[in-house]
Simulated assay, not measured.
Amino acid sequence: MSDEDLSARVTLLEETIAHQSRTIEDLSGEIAGQWKIIDQLQFRLERLTEQFRALEDATLEAPAVTKPPHY
């Protein structure tokens, strides 16, 4: 293997590593953004669940037992 071939292979490997590093950084940024969105959605879901339970508790109360006026 000549020095030129070896140099070309090393250059190709360096370029490949640089592209892969950039891709990994991009993907890492995307994942971080998605986790931020997931955290926001979980917070909203918890709030909505609490509101739903409060409404459910308010509507599930049994009406008072009273005699109709004609008795």
Rank of each mutant, 00 (worst) to 15 (best):
A54H: 10
D5K: 05
S7V: 01
Q42G: 02
E61P: 00
D57Q: 06
I17W: 03
T11S: 07
A32M: 12
W35Q: 15
R53G: 03
A8H: 10
A62V: 14
T59E: 09
A8F: 02
S28W: 05
A62C: 08
K36I: 10
L48C: 08
E50L: 02
L60W: 02
Q51T: 03
A64N: 08
D39P: 01
F43A: 12
H19G: 00
E14H: 06
E46P: 02
S2E: 01
H19C: 03
K67S: 08
R47I: 05
E61K: 11
I38C: 03
S7I: 03
L13N: 13
L60H: 10
E30T: 13
D5A: 10
A58E: 13
L55R: 13
D26W: 02
R9H: 09
D57V: 03
S2G: 10
L48F: 04
Q34H: 10
A58Y: 04
E14Q: 13
A18D: 03
A18R: 14
R22C: 08
V10K: 13
A62M: 09
I24D: 02
T23K: 15
D39A: 11
I31V: 13
A64K: 13
D26R: 09
P63Q: 11
I31Q: 04
I38P: 00
D57E: 14
T11C: 11
P63F: 08
K36Y: 05
G29M: 04
L27S: 07
F43P: 00
E56L: 14
Q42R: 11
E30R: 08
P68K: 07
